[in-house]
Nucleic acid binder design. Sequence first.
RNA 1: GGGCGAUUAGCUCAGCGGGAGAGCGCCCGCUUCACACGCGGGAGGUCGCUGGUUCGAUCCCAGCAUCGCCCACCA
Length: 845
Amino acid sequence: MVDLRRDELERRSRHDPAAVESQLFERWEAAGLFRADPHSGRPSYVIALPPPNVTGELHMGHALNGSIQDSLIRLARMRGRETLWICGTDHASIAVHAVIEKQLRAEGTTRFEVGRDAFIERVWEWRSETGARIIQQFKRLGCALDYEHERFTMDEGYVQAVLEMFVRLYDKQLIYRDNRIVNWCPGCGSTVSDLEVRYEHAADALFEVRYPIKGSDEHITVATVRPETILADTAVAVHPDDDRYRHLVGGIAIVPIVNREVPIIADEYVKMDFGTGALKITPGHDPNDFEIGRRHGLSELSVIGFDGRMNDQAGEFAGMAAGEARQKVVDRLFADGLLRGEQPYEHEVGHCDRSGDRIEPLISLQWFMQMDELAAAANAEVRSGRVRFIPTSQENTYFHWMDNIRSWCVSRQLWWGHQIPVWYCQDGHSTAATSAPAACGQCGSTELERDPDVLDTWFSSALWPFATLGWPEQTDRLEAFYPGNALVTARDIINLWVARMLMMGIEFMGEIPFTDVYITSIIQAADGRRMSKSLGTGINPLDLIERYGADATRYGLLKMSSTQDVRFAEGMIDEGAKLANKLWNASRFVLLQADASVEPAAVAVRGEDRWILSRLEGTGAEVLRLIDAYDFAGAVKLLYALIWNDFCDWYVEAAKSRLYGDDDQARRDVTATLLWVLERILALAHPLLPFVTEEIWSFMPGRSGLLMASAMPEWQAGMCDPALEHAAQNDMDVVSAARRIANEGQAPSVIVTPDTLFRMLLPKTANVSLDVHAPSASAAAAAPDPELIRGELADATAELERARAKLANEGFIARAPAVLVEAERDKVRRFEALVADLTRRLEQR
RNA sequence: GGGCGAUUAGCUCAGCGGGAGAGCGCCCGCUUCACACGCGGGAGGUCGCUGGUUCGAUCCCAGCAUCGCCCACCA
């Protein structure tokens, strides 16, 4: 059995992720390691996965999030926490709705033709396919999610939670219905929230239009980019301090074309230095004008309908698209001699984030949520530091939004989503309830009709951290796993999602849902553009996993996640693949050297042993510190240096002289240390590179069980470091201590020294030799055949020459840790002795 | 308009007060018994620009330029 595994090790000279990763994942799953036990009594560590939309494939952002969260989760588990990573997907109301509507259009039909029930049924089919695919992709990445409790924001229990939340907020009068101006997307046929409006540059024209003054020959000239809304004007406004117009305030202006008499009002909103200083007020079609209108009690007229076309109120323009009407209105103004000027005007215009259509601000009867009290409570938690953003600078985004928060329009004229739990009777009374009420709460009428609208997707997302645990039921899981610890997401949904989870967590659970909000980088395409499917700049993480392996993909993504925007660099994934292979092969070497009777142990007999142990402990402590500080790029970089440079380049190479030497005890000692170091490296690397480490672990002699379930070792930074020890004993700093050791002429086996320290010590160590691969002295000496001796001698002489060439190269010596240079001196001496011995034997023959 | 961030080797990025670095790419040499996804050697940077602070600045401060992202109700 053991021999079979040796054979396997010898055979597999290359790490092949595709051949092992899926089996390893199955072993973790079979061992139940993704589950969390609410009754274990151990302190918990909980992260809720930002639920991906069931719109399609996993993208690079998900893969990055997944890599980060999985590292945190695995580390927490190894540290003994009861660890839960909440798993699930989001119904993504408007986004999925748009996908299905597009499909229907392609089939030559519409949702209205197929009907609500058939439409919803179709969405569920879509969701069962995509949802499963997305979860499968997380598995390929190695994510230790709690797959058994996968949730969906539209599953039965979740729907109840959403309705419960709505009704409670309704009862507190934080949710109310009102006729207000909203962002209307004609393409979606629905309202969208402020955060779903994207501003795009538009080259329009700014028109100056003369409004006659009643009872006067005067005119007042306003500037507008939307002449078609003139038809809905209900006032003209000027600044109260504007001397040019002061005499007109209180007068009546006559709206062109419709000849409506409207008041001239004074409002401080108007900028005196913009346009003409006079502003036409159209409460029905402009959010600012709406506010001004409400302040002054103006009537609210609408001339543009929900279809984006001019309505019956628009007279001769009725039926035209707004853009078409604009030109016609301008023509008419020109004909009437009321168009005073026109100039090119560039500005930002709101477009729907989903459909790309131009947003039409319209007055509409919608459900709103009062946000200011909720926001104040959430802000207090961030201001006090109980909730912290990493990096801190991202708090600006949060506060900027929260400090200026406005009511949230939560109703959407869509079918896919949580239908608003409000029933209306014939008299228009509203009754909110978590299930269909028998009668109107006010008049007792039994003829009730449910509000057809659904809720904004983010309404349900806001409850994710506790609705997934069973809320509003008081479940064991809710008790054990709320509040959670960290939230990992990108900054584009800080306000859409993070802020709202904080508010709802406080409101419904009385406690913040997490303390750490880690804002990840956003990975751009290699050319610097945004990575998106529509631009064709997206890269499927699954392709990377297939080509490089999951460890490599995770490594690369973590390494890229340093600044807030980073360009995708496939080279970093490749680096990860090479590191995994390097670790595999170094491990293979160590394991194949290992005698079954040798136990891993830190046997610090020589300088290089002390050196590697020190590097290991110091790096281990630092890597964990960096992960705890959410510096994954830094952690991965250090791990790379530890594995490749310290362990493989130096220690394994230095160990060879003992492994291939005559001294049996020395061989056993160094093997024990190699195993010890390897084992600890595997544990350290596991949260970051779970697959390859678990695979190697399965070959460790005398280690049963899974690495994933093993304990993370304690790390003792400073172990085996004479400089540190000296510094501690003599109460001095490390650099001074190291300098003193060197000055005293001792072997400067300085361990955790920075590079500068090595340089400082170089003059004392530059004249020594380096390790070379000496042939076994005993083997050569025992060889009776002169030809064999001649061959060995030739090899040995060549090696010696190479060694001397290296020694002549200062650059090479500068790169070698001083301690290793020093420690290898005697070895080279032995090597020279070997050449002399072989020469003598040859002469004797 | 406001906020955040970036500008360091051909490329992607670390470094952030005294030595300019990594990976990839490039050049030279190696089928050295863990690894050619490797080993050894090497070329290649006035650290965006201008000032300031400092004994000393890629690193701190100010301004400018270019790029990116987020937020934003001047018609």
